[in-house]
Design a protein around this nucleic acid. Structure first.
Length: 196
DNA sequence: GCAATGATTTACT
DNA sequence: GTAAATCATTGCC
C-alpha cells in the first residue's frame, strides 16, 4: 500500500523517520521499476543547525522543504552526489527526512548497471549518494510528490519492532554543534546495507 | 562577481 | 582506516 500525503504531513518528523524504517522506496524510470526497503534514515528540522533551512530561512535550493509533506527534496552535495529527502510537516514548515540507505529488492540488475562494476555488491545502495544513483534519481525529481508514479514509498505490512531499530547521531554534520548530537538517525540493526 | 564550503564517495595504504 | 577529489550553492565583496 502506497503511503498517503497525510502520513508525511504530521508534525513529528522524528517519528515519521522512525516509522519509515522497513518501508519500501521505489522509482519508475521509463517504465523500469527499481527500489527496496529503507534501512537507514535521518530526520532534519528547521529548528536545528543540521538542516539546510535552519531558522526557517528559504533559499532557491531549499525552497521545496517549505512545501507540504510528501514532496521529494533532491539536492546536490559535494558537487557530485544527489541526496534524496522527503519533505514532512505542513506547508511553510521546513522539516524533512533524508533516506541514507535501502536494501535492494526490485530492479537489482538495473541498479548494478547504473552503478557500474562494483567489487562489493553491498555497496550498491549503502549510502545516500549511492542509492540515488542506483535508483536513477537526479535533481529533476526535486519537488515531485510521492503520490506520482515516478517515485513513491510503499508499506508492505512488514512490522519492525523497536528493538530491531538502532538509534544514533547523524552523520557528517559536526558543524551543527550540540544539534549534531541529536539521536535522529535510525538504522535497521545488523543490516549489511546500512552505511558505516 | 568570486572564493569558501560541505547531510559523500572512491581509491589507496 | 585515511585522504583526496569535486562543483553547486552560499555568502560576502
Amino acid at each position: 500500500m502506497r503511503l498517503e500525503p497525510r502520513f508525511y504531513e504530521r508534525e513529528n518528523v522524528v517519528k515519521i523517520a522512525r516509522e519509515l524504517i522497513g518501508k519500501y522506496l521505489f522509482t519508475n524510470i521509463e517504465g523500469v521499476i527499481a527500489g527496496g526497503m529503507v534501512v537507514e534514515i535521518e530526520a532534519y528540522s528547521w529548528k536545528e543547525r543540521g538542516c539546510h533551512a535552519y531558522g526557517g530561512k528559504m533559499t532557491s535550493r531549499n525552497k521545496v522543504m517549505f512545501e507540504t509533506g510528501g514532496c521529494a527534496y533532491v539536492y546536490l552535495c559535494y558537487g557530485i552526489h544527489n541526496l534524496f529527502n522527503v519533505v514532512t510537516n505542513k506547508p511553510g514548515i521546513a522539516d524533512a527526512v533524508l533516506i541514507r540507505a535501502i536494501e535492494p529488492s526490485e530492479g537489482i540488475d538495473t541498479m548494478k548497471q547504473r552503478r557500474g562494476n562494483l567489487q562489493n555488491p553491498f555497496h550498491l545502495t549503502s549510502g545516500p549518494g549511492k542509492l540515488t544513483k542506483a535508483l536513477g534519481i537526479d535533481r529533476t525529481f526535486n519537488g515531485k510528490f510521492l503520490i506520482n508514479n515516478d517515485v513513491w514509498i510503499e508499506d508492505r505490512g512488514e512490522k519492525v519492532s523497536s528493538r530491531e531499530i538502532e538509534v544514533g547521531t547523524r552523520i557528517g554534520i559536526d558543524y551543527a554543534g550540540t544539534d549534531a548530537k541529536l539521536p535522529w538517525r535510525f538504522t535497521l540493526k545488523e543490516n549489511p546495507w546500512v552505511s558505516k
